[in-house]
Design a protein around this nucleic acid. Structure first.
Lengths: 228, 228
DNA sequence: CCAAAAGTGTTTGCTCTACACCCATGG
DNA sequence: CCATGGGTGTAGAGCAAACACTTTTGG
């Protein structure tokens, strides 16, 4: 039951966002270099305070936009971290989100109050992170991999139109394994979440048909049950 | 990035807990009748403020213990709700948990600051709920059903020792469908999460072997991937 | 000996997986 | 015409689903 009174000390509330993208054929996360203590000069997840008049998702969206200039992205709440010792300055509870942004988007940082440095890091080569952000990022990667296996979230990392080979590469990069071309194509098409366009992309070799995400599709398949 | 300063107004932070149990052959949730405005005399989820020196899980555990006298239970973070309008008195962000407690435990409410009334409600016959608690409860039911299908969480609703028929009934009640006895037994035993004891339970008909949960077992099976 | 619930295997169909060759274009 | 990546089908194996009778106890 939500309580009757409010005369308690309150933790500070922030959002932190794990922003993934594909760059240079690998999965990368956006990090910000801290400009002040504690953890000065260490890398950390982008994030900030939740304002009093916005939802948590709006706060995450806003912070992401401030860091990347990007509004359109897949955004999902991940977990809320509330260990009293996670921030040495005092009690800070953070709602973590993860976001997927399209591979071809160039981020530009809009001038914020903090002029800290931002950079993309391949998830296999992450620097030491401030606070409990390493734990958050590890969990985000696990959730992304898992989600990829039973939902069709992979498109979110690609431009609006893409070839089936590009989509397969995306899956292979994130899952870290080779996939069979024919099985991949059959299953992804049977799932009905993408549809062919009338365009093709020419390059070396035979031109490839371009596909797009079907916004009306049910992106999440029902996993076959294991129990009982 | 977690911010540098703290001179912002802060939302209040609470935990709310959806406590499930099995009673009278159906899945029920514990609700508390509110004793004051807003939503006076309406039913609501048990919950309360997060204290400055406890983790979120500790807060949920403590609130649950205050409501049910029960410390031992399965407890999992569900989602964090932060709509600015969700509480008419001001900004309250709540971290929702769901808990499973054993069927045979009689709850006793320990004297708290609020002497409100508590009651179990079958999830098919819920009263109107205060705040956004109906949304939280609906999501908790969905998560419980889904989780039951790919993990072995069903034991948490049964006493330490149970028969396979009781376990099957539990699954049937929560999933809302009949299951095949032989397939159920084969799959649940192959999963290796329960083991037979040397005891049997006598009643009408042939006595049934009692099983127990194996605490060393990996309770979560890897779901077969659907994508790609 | 009868009622009531526990316990036990096999067959069938379907789904997943592994696998190799032809096609269309640009240079 | 050749190099490059795009596109296609099938056979075998393994898993899941459907299904009915025997066993053990108490009254």
């Amino acid at each position: 039951m939500t309580p009757y009174t409010y005369d308690y000390p309150r933790p500070a509330l922030t959002v932190d966002i794990v922003i993934f993208t594909l760059r240079d054929n690998c999965l990368q996360a956006l990090l910000i270099k801290r400009g002040s203590e504690p953890y000065k000069d260490m890398w950390a997840l982008p994030g900030g305070f939740v304002r009093m008049d916005e939802t948590l998702e709006e706060a995450a969206c806003r912070e992401m936009q401030e860091e990347t200039g990007l509004k359109q992205a897949y955004l999902e709440q991940l977990y809320t971290y509330g260990n009293p010792q996670r921030d040495p300055r005092g009690r800070v509870v953070t709602v973590a989100y993860f976001a997927l942004i399209q591979a071809d988007v160039d981020i530009r940082r809009e001038g914020g109050t903090d002029v800290s440095q931002a950079g993309w890091f391949p998830i296999g080569y992450l620097p030491p992170l401030a606070f409990d952000h390493a734990e958050i990022l590890t969990y985000a990667i696990r959730r992304l991999r898992y989600k990829l296996e039973y939902s069709a979230v992979g498109f979110q990392l690609l431009p609006d139109q893409f070839t089936l080979s590009e989509l397969q590469f995306t899956y292979e990069i994130i899952l870290g394994e080779k996939l069979d071309k024919r099985n991949f194509r059959r299953r992804i098409l049977e799932a009905g979440v993408i549809e062919p366009t009338s365009d093709v992309r020419s390059g070396e070799g035979r031109p490839a048909r371009l596909y797009r995400y079907r916004p009306d599709a049910i992106a999440e398949a029902k996993a076959r049950r294991l129990f009982p």
